[in-house]
Structure formats: C-alpha cells, structure tokens
C-alpha cells in the first residue's frame, strides 16, 4: 500500500540535483525557503493594492 502514496512535491528532485559542495539536507531547506520567498514575492504583486480596506469591508450575509 505504501507505494501508492504520492510523496509531497516539495521533496522531489532536489536530492538528485544536490550540489557536490553542499549537503542535501541544507540544500532541501534552502530550496523550500527559496520557494516560500518566491511565493511571498508573488503575493506582494498579487495582493489587492487596497487589501486592508477590502478585507475590512468584506461582510457576508450568514448562510447555512
């Protein structure tokens, strides 16, 4: 059954690419951090310019 489990994407590939100078673990940590940094850069671009006002004025009627 275990082989049916798909491993999280974030751990794929980078061990193969491990640089001879750096231990794989450090590389993995750096890679994840770089991914998050890229993502946060993107959030800075994608987040509504008036995000604070938008979220303040976001009111919904209660539903089910």
């Amino acid at each position: 059954m275990a082989e049916r489990i798909q491993k999280p994407k974030t751990t794929s590939k980078k061990t193969e690419q491990a640089d001879e100078a750096a231990p794989a673990v450090t590389e993995t940590g750096d890679k994840i951090k770089a991914d998050i940094d890229d993502l946060l850069d993107e959030i800075d671009d994608v987040l509504e310019t008036n995000a604070e006002d938008f979220v303040k004025s976001y009111v919904q009627k209660g539903g089910q």
Binding site: K9, T10, D35, L39, E42, I43, V46, L47, E48, A51, E52, F54, V55, Y58
Partner: peptide, 21 residues
C-alpha cells in the same frame, strides 16, 4: 486577514491558493 481572504478568491489573477503549490 487579507491573505486569508484572498487565498479563496476565485479570480484567477488574484487567487492565492492557486499559487501555493
């Protein structure tokens, strides 16, 4: 709170979930 809200935004150019890997 805005990030929380925009995670669920279904506009393709704004949806944060779509960018979260």
């Amino acid at each position: 709170k805005a990030i929380d809200l925009q995670y669920h935004d279904l506009r393709p150019d704004r949806c944060l979930a779509q960018r979260a890997g």
